[in-house]
């Protein structure tokens, strides 16, 4: 768990971060989202003291980060950045081994850990461990960058647009892999992004920032359906209903029990409302079965159920609360 308490950062007269308080729970992936210059990267970099706050407190698991030396602190926190910053003179394996080596882990253990991480990133160890960064594609380099951040198995990860420098197709793929990995590892992650679909896809919660302040914090559907300010509403653009369909999971709806007769089609409760809608429209039945992913049926929904959920969610038609 990491907590920012009234954290400020000013450069001369310029305010970069204006008294931000934010708490990211253990195992949660929180995306700092916002236009460039909103202070999201500065906020992230204060967590491992690459930037020292002008005032305020940052606590990791209840301990003030100012109590550890910057070097000690950084070795305990994973760090991945957009331009990846792999060391060009070191092999993939040596890059991944950076933090474990600094911490004095035994060579045999490091080698095993490196291979484990490469496999985890869908990079075959035998093929990749001895390559140099110049021999990797953009997507492969980003995967190695994430592996390097995870190497010392830190409970907390700081990621500054780690998938920002690759083409859209590979980005979608690496994003899905990363989300699957995070569901398994349950790290506490602060993830900086300026990409709305990426934030909506990955975030447990989004902290939307503007000019040094957090405008709103909440789960993606919450920000879309009930924006706290005009800025939040405008930020997600015109088609917020569509975004809501894409970010809300069927499991979040009230699912009525299945009626008599089995529905012909069924999807998992983990699916989004958009997927449910498509399934309803392409199927010939009026009902769509919902299963829990392990063969158990949870109930069934109709087009009307989705409409009712959307109406409730967008109840105030997205008028800002303040």
């Amino acid at each position: 768990m990491i907590e920012f308490i009234d954290v400020r950062k000013t450069y001369g007269g310029e305010i970069a971060v204006n008294g931000v308080s934010l708490r990211v729970e253990t195992g949660e992936l929180c995306v700092l989202l916002g236009p460039s210059g909103c202070g999201k990267t500065t906020l992230l970099r204060m967590a491992n003291r690459l930037v020292e706050p002008t005032s305020g407190t940052i606590m990791i698991d209840g301990e003030d980060i100012m109590c550890s030396s910057p070097v000690e602190l950084r070795r305990r926190i994973g760090y991945a950045i957009q331009s990846v910053g792999l060391f060009p003179h070191r092999t993939v394996a040596q890059n991944i081994a950076t933090t474990p080596e600094l911490m004095g882990m035994a060579a045999g253990k490091i080698a095993a850990r490196t291979d484990e991480l490469l496999s985890m990133m869908n990079l075959e160890p035998a093929r990749y461990r001895d390559r140099y960064p110049s021999q990797l594609s953009g997507g492969e380099a980003q995967r190695v960058g994430v592996a390097r951040a995870l190497a010392a198995d830190p409970p907390l990860l700081l990621m500054d647009e780690p998938f920002g420098a690759i083409d859209p197709i590979n980005r979608a793929e690496i994003r899905e892999e990363f989300l699957a990995l995070q569901r398994r590892l349950r790290k506490t992650i602060i993830f900086v992004s300026h990409d709305i679909p990426e934030a909506l896809f990955l975030a447990d919660r989004i902290a939307l920032m503007r000019s040094g302040n957090i405008e709103q914090v909440g789960a993606p559907p919450e920000l879309i359906a009930s924006p706290a300010t005009e800025f939040v509403k405008r930020f997600f653009g015109g088609d917020r209903r569509m975004l809501l369909l894409e970010t809300t999971r069927v499991a979040e709806m009230t699912i009525p029990p299945a009626g008599p007769g089995n529905p012909r089609a069924a999807i998992a409760a983990e699916s989004t409302l958009r997927e449910a809608l498509l399934a309803l429209m392409s199927g010939d039945g009026e009902h769509l079965g919902i299963h829990d992913g392990n063969g158990g049926m949870l109930g069934e929904i109709t087009l009307g159920d989705i409409q009712r959920h959307m109406a409730l969610a967008m109840r105030a038609d997205g008028e800002p609360r303040r």
Binding site: N48, L50, V71, E72, L73, R74, R75, Y79, I81, Q82, S83, V84, G85, L86, F87, P88, H89, T98, T99, L102, M103, G145, R148, L158
Partner: peptide
């Protein structure tokens, strides 16, 4: 590249290690 040095610092190298190893 500044990113290389930023990564070295962020991963927990001391200034001396950054200079000698990177």
């Amino acid at each position: 590249p500044p990113a290389t040095l930023d990564a070295a610092r962020g991963l927990g190298m001391t200034e001396r290690q950054i200079f000698l190893r990177v």
